[in-house]
């Protein structure tokens, strides 16, 4: 991991204002991404992992006002407080985006070819015929069968997996340095999921692009990511190399998540393991650790002061839990 850092997020908070409410779905998050690496951001629905990535890029639904604080450095450009025209140049140019649902993310009234070509026209200054031939190359790059015919087809004529390939072709059309993939495999069949992950890995190698992968699928994380950030209620609970975090989790939430994955040696008919309780409702600020009410190891101080994300005994891994770290390997919770 000697390559240069292209994204550094420091103490980022996102406040969302709708007509009725104010919420803080992202609360003091920090991480960094190096060129060509993959960072997975893991968390359950509502943990803020999508807002964290999309709010700074201006990719929020209309009617939602966003207030950012903290810092996001992308190649030495500060994205917090950046002017819309400058941000627009980054979107689709140096930063590509893949959305969760390829069924609705493509325009039903335009051909595949035009939807891919317009990105190169905009960011690479290609003429429409040049962009058209580049669109063909991109379809070959994402390994579409019969790419010539696909160019003239409409989204409704393609399957979900093929549409996600088209989305990927759109996202990498301007050869971005950073690709943000929001649950790119969630809406797809399991067999197609593996193909899409393989494709992303291949593209990453060819284009030397960094990937921020938002997911709740630990299998996907293990398959593609080099580092992982586990999010809970808008905060990072644990952050470090995938090999360390998945094998030897140090935060009770990460332990619970990994323990909840069904195992081959589970007795037939046994119940699924899960975390007791439910995630907190965003709205009122949480003074202490957000996970404390569901945590087996929580003590009184957990409810009062917010634990900082600090290095553990394994220096590459940080966890926001003073209790477990104090006892070093808190192995009492999970038996592997």
């Amino acid at each position: 991991m000697a390559s240069k850092e292209i994204l550094r997020v420091s103490d980022l908070c996102v406040d969302l204002f709708t007509q009725r409410s104010v919420i803080r779905p992202v609360d003091g998050v920090s991480y960094s991404v190096a060129a060509g690496e993959t960072l997975a951001i893991v968390g359950e629905s509502g943990s803020g992992k999508t807002v964290l990535n999309f709010a700074p890029l201006g990719l929020m639904p209309t009617g939602v006002n966003v207030d950012l604080s903290g810092s996001i450095l992308f190649n030495d450009t500060e994205l917090v407080g950046i002017a819309e025209p400058a941000l627009r140049k980054l979107r689709g140019g140096s930063i590509g985006t893949i959305f969760q649902d390829p069924m609705s993310a493509l325009n039903p009234a335009r051909t595949i070819g035009r939807q891919i070509a317009e990105v190169s026209e905009l960011h690479m200054g290609l003429s429409s015929s040049q962009a058209e031939s580049r669109a063909l190359d991109l379809l070959k790059l994402v390994r579409m069968s019969d790419p010539d015919a696909r160019l003239k087809q409409y989204p409704h004529e393609l399957s979900g997996g093929l549409r996600q390939r088209v989305m990927i072709a759109i996202a990498v059309a301007a050869e971005p340095q950073l690709l943000i993939a929001d649950e790119p495999t969630t809406a797809l069949d399991v067999t197609v999921q593996a193909q899409i992950i393989a494709l992303l890995k291949d593209l990453q190698k060819r284009l030397n692009m960094a990937i921020v992968l938002i997911t709740h699928d630990m299998g996907v994380v293990a398959g593609i990511a080099s580092r992982v950030a586990v999010m809970y209620a808008g905060r990072v609970a644990e952050y470090g190399p995938v090999g360390d975090v998945l094998v030897e989790p140090r935060h009770p939430y990460t332990m619970g998540l990994i323990d909840a994955i069904p195992r081959a040696d589970d007795a037939p008919g046994s119940l699924f393991r899960g975390l007791p309780g439910a995630p907190p409702i965003l709205g009122a600020p949480i003074p202490g650790c957000a996970f404390a009410p569901r945590c087996h190891a929580a003590i009184e101080s957990c409810h009062i002061t917010r634990p900082a994300l600090v290095s553990t005994v394994q220096p590459l891994v940080s966890a926001a839990c003073p209790i477990i770290n104090k006892h070093n390997h808190g192995g009492a919770y999970v038996q592997h």
Binding site: G92, A105, N107, L122
Partner: peptide, 25 residues
């Protein structure tokens, strides 16, 4: 609709999105 967000992510201006993406629909 979600495809308009895709168009924003491509870096298109609102005017272009209206003409090229919303109008055909």
């Amino acid at each position: 609709r979600p495809f308009a967000l895709t168009a924003v992510a491509k870096g298109l201006t609102r005017r272009t999105i209206l003409v090229r993406h919303a109008l055909p629909n």
